[in-house]
């Protein structure tokens, strides 16, 4: 029900606040009226029931992915990512 799918913006119609997005290879439209950040073609948004709810933050996504890369690279060292999650 709360399914929201990362979708890439391929075109924006500013007048109607509608975007054309690509979702896992399928082209569909998404309403941008609720997105707070400025978005442009090439950005990823999270689309829920045809309406974009947030822009996916590239820096945060990268941080996340880099952390997993680090975990993999240093896989033989114990507690390698003790500086990662679970720190409060």
């Amino acid at each position: 029900m709360c399914l929201a799918i990362p979708s890439k913006i391929t075109a924006i119609d500013k007048e109607t606040s509608m975007a054309t997005v690509e979702t896992m290879g399928v082209t569909r439209s998404a309403n941008l009226a609720l997105v707070e950040d400025e978005v442009s073609v090439g950005d990823w948004v999270l689309v829920h029931v045809g309406i974009a709810m947030s822009r996916i933050d590239e820096n945060e996504a990268r941080k996340n992915l880099d952390l997993f890369e680090d975990i993999l690279r240093e896989e033989d060292e114990l507690n390698v990512s003790d500086s990662g999650p679970g720190q409060c």
Binding site: M1, C2, L34, H48, V49, G50, I51, M53
Partner: peptide, 8 residues
């Protein structure tokens, strides 16, 4: 829906 869907 939950909080996710109410704005829609």
């Amino acid at each position: 829906g939950f909080e996710t869907t109410t704005p829609m």
